[in-house]
Design a protein around this nucleic acid. Structure first.
Length: 413
DNA sequence: TCTGGGGTCCTTTCACCC
DNA sequence: TCTGGGGTGAAAGGACCC
């Protein structure tokens, strides 16, 4: 097989790898948050480091490969990670720092091609089909990106090069850390079929269990199952989708501008709460955050959705679609409170509440109409003034009175 | 072993209209 | 007048991703 894995930033990739049908790159930063932290703490290089909240109910956000060798992985409860690797240095996350590096890395991508689809702060798809004449073959461009990211930001990344998004994504995962893997167009099926089904995008714990019950363990096993059987067992869309992926069929293009579908914030309490006043105060805080983010992004939304998670981790969602779209926290909050009250959980211990706005559209396309009996409250203007004050004086400059009261209570307690 | 926070997408159910 | 079916949109739940 001519598939080649090239590890480390070396010269241009070896000859003999046919990347001619492989315009799609998936770039994935290695242990991103942990790598960024090591830039400030070089003395920790080569040692187990975990990024995550050191206290309370948190999960691992990122871990160095030294920590991973003890079994630590992201999304694992911190308490468990600490037990598995007690010698690890634990660093609380600094999201501002990560988004700054992320922005810089995305600029490196945009200098290569405008066809960049970010899928998280630490990874993106690139379609370099249009950059070949200017910069070279996809594998050459991939090497260039790896070298530039390392040079400018001091962190490594891995790149998968393939004919489709999902194969590129699997390729980058296979060559991690600090690698480059080209999967030639003609070798996609050979590459895919030995992999476990859980490697496929969209197969999580539940779907894997369903597949194992059917005796399906590898992608090759999956490929041999008749499509109607998969549709019956997994549902129309998921069954059809996985059947296509198992044969390497993935037509999704790299899309540079994916519009936001929803904006939300949620918070897990340090201890479960059953006081409706405290919960409503939290709903107000979250509504303020969501509305402010919507105004910053230039969105209004029509559907208010509230998420409530009980102490036993069961979760319920309640949503309501408004007559007119809004970006006003007071309107979002009023609806969120009604949904919370209607859910009948006012004396139930909750561990998390969330507020989300869906059905988004650009604010400038939405003309607000006053209905019969409505009155213009002036909340939008007040909140826009708050946005300005916050921009000038910081996030604590202005707060609704009830949140100030809540903060005073916390200080007195 | 006890589960964050930001999202997207899919499925099911139900109401409503024709 | 009653019944049924198809289409559509909203709501709720849940799987999955990073």
């Amino acid at each position: 097989m001519s598939r080649k894995q090239i590890t480390g930033i070396g010269p241009a990739p070896q000859t003999g790898v046919d990347d001619s049908g492989c315009p799609i790159l998936h770039v994935d930063m290695d242990a991103f948050f942990a790598s960024v932290e090591l830039l400030d703490r070089p003395e920790l290089r080569g040692r187990p480091v975990i990024v995550g909240s050191p206290a309370g109910r948190g999960v691992v956000l990122s871990a160095t490969y030294e920590a991973r060798s003890y079994g630590v992985h992201s999304a694992m409860p911190m308490s468990r990670a600490r037990r598995m690797c007690p010698q690890a240095t634990i660093i609380p996350p600094s999201h501002g720092k990560y988004s700054e590096v992320s922005k810089g890395v995305m600029e490196v991508f945009h200098a290569i091609t405008p066809m960049v689809e970010p899928i998280a702060s630490d990874e993106a798809f690139l379609d370099v089909g249009g950059a070949r004449r200017r910069l070279g073959s996809p594998a050459v461009i991939a090497s260039m990106i790896r070298a530039q990211v390392l040079e400018r930001y001091g962190i490594t990344c891995s790149v998968g090069v393939a004919s489709s998004k999902f194969v590129a994504k699997l390729a980058s995962k296979q060559c991690k850390p600090d690698g480059l893997l080209v999967v030639p167009e003609g070798e996609v099926v050979d590459f895919l079929h030995p992999l476990p089904v859980s490697a496929l995008w969209g197969v999580g714990e539940r779907t894997e269990q369903s597949l194992v019950r059917l005796g399906i363990r590898t992608v090759g096993d999956l490929a041999r199952v008749p499509v109607p059987t998969l549709r019956r067992e997994l549902g129309q869309a998921v069954g059809g989708h996985l059947a296509a992926l198992a044969w390497g069929r993935d037509e999704r293009p790299v899309t540079a501008h994916v519009p936001d579908k929803s904006i939300g914030n949620e918070e897990t309490f340090a201890a479960d709460i059953d006081d409706p006043e405290v919960i409503k105060r939290e709903l107000l805080r979250l509504s303020e955050r969501v509305a402010s983010r919507m105004r910053k992004a230039g969105h209004v939304g029509r559907t208010v959705s509230v998420k409530l998670r009980r102490a036993d981790f069961t979760t319920i969602n309640r949503s309501r679609t408004l007559r007119e779209p809004t970006d006003v926290a007071q309107e979002i909050y009023a609806t969120a409170c009604e949904l919370f009250e209607a859910a009948g959980l006012e004396r139930v211990r909750l561990r998390l509440v969330g507020v989300r706005m869906e059905n988004l559209r650009p604010a400038d396309s939405a003309s607000r109409q006053l209905g019969l009996g409505d009155r213009e409250t002036g909340w939008r203007e007040a909140e826009q003034a708050m946005d300005q004050a916050i921009r000038r004086f910081g996030p604590d400059a202005v707060l609704p009175a009830s949140l100030v009261r809540g903060r005073l209570d916390e200080m007195e307690a």
